[in-house]
Structure formats: structure tokens, C-alpha cells
Amino acid sequence: MTGSLPSRAAYGAHLRQRGVRRPVSHYIRKSRCFGAQRYGVGGNRMPKDAPPRWDRRMQQRLARGEAAALGELYDRFASLVHSLAHRVLDDEDAADQVTRDVFGHVWENPQSYDPKDGSMRAWMARLTHRRAVHRLRQAEAAALEDGEGTAEELELKVHRAAAVARADYIVTSMPAPLREALELAYFDRHDYRQTASRLSITEDEARRRLRLGLQLLSTANTVPGTGPGSGLDTGTGAQGFGGGL
């Protein structure tokens, strides 16, 4: 109950270690949003041809073997796929590989997408999640055989990685007003009164948005068998990417 907020102090140093040539200011600037903008869910930036029509057309074009459609698919979803994979695996090369696998699978099996099951975005997030978790499990199992850690630790790590990836997806998919409130309170460290004034809403409404946003987010943590929507199996990760948020 007394746990503190996750530390963001070592944040810049952590990124600098990865050897990517970026000014630190760039990351700090970037850290102030949850990346929804990059995933193209930022409201007015959506192309006019919005889902589900876009999804169906894309599926047809992929089925037809149109390389240009594959490029467009990548342009729309690569950032989402790669960042989810990276969140689970915490490894650039492994995330690259999962990205290749996911797009390879979609390109080879466009018919396996069923628009009735939700958006193509949610479908791709599920594919990514499943593959990334599978890969993490394999890597951890290999480490286990080498005598590193215990089976319980492995399970915990996989569960945790699956949850944070689901949480990322939930944040980028939640209604923009909730996301904005969370960003102001979390990244900008505004209290709810400042958040209310920044968003020109009542303090009541600010409290409501913060609570609702966290409630949505907390569904990512749901452990199988402990409550409603408990199908959040870490092995498939099929839920939590419903796209209905």
C-alpha cells in the first residue's frame, strides 16, 4: 500500500546506454506521452478511410498480393507491433524478429483475420503479444535449463511482461480524454486540480478520469481465475486486445 511511483530518475541514463544517437532531450520530450500519437490513434490524425472499412480493404489487398498494401500495413502498425514486442522482450533484436514474424504471418495469411473479431489493429496486437510471450517463455526456459532462476521466477517474469505489454496497448486504445488526464498526472506530475485546469474540466471530472483510466489499465494485471474477464491467459494474451476500449 505504501509503494511509491516507479522511478523515472534513471530514465535518461538507461536509454543512453543503448547507443542510439539521440539527444537526451529527445527522449525526455518523448517520455511525456504514451505514444498514442505515433500509433495513429490521435483522433484528428486518422486518415479519412478509418476502420473497419480500412481493415476490410487492407485484407482484400493483402490477399491479392499487393506489395504496396504490405508497405501501408507496415506504416500503420510497425510502431505498435515493435513496441509491444519490445515491452515484452526488452531486446531490440528479438523485437525486430517478432516484427518480421508478425508481418510475415499477416502477409502470408491475410484470410486468417476475421473482421467480426475486432479491428485489424487489435488482431495484430494479439498476434504480436502471443509471439513475443512465446519467445520470452522459450528464452526463459532455456535459461532455466542452464540453472538460472526457478520455474516460479520464470512464470512471474512472463506474467509481468505480458501484463505490461497489455497495459501499453490499453493506454494507446483508451479514450483520449482518459489518456490525456493520465499523461498530465503521471508524466507531468500535475495533481488532479492542475490536471482539471489544464484540461478545462471540473475537479470532479479530473478525479473521475484518473480513476477510470487506472481501472481500465488494471485489467491488464488480471490473473486467470481471479475475477471477471479472467481469460487473460499469459500464454495467448488473446484478451486485453479487444479493441473495444
Binding site: P6, S7, R8, Y27, S31, H86, A167, L182
Partner: peptide, 8 residues
């Protein structure tokens, strides 16, 4: 669970 770092 909130992302404490921006993805690269």
C-alpha cells in the same frame, strides 16, 4: 504498469 520510458 504505466510505461516509464518511451519505446525507442
Amino acid at each position: 504498469l504505466l510505461q516509464s520510458e518511451r519505446g525507442l
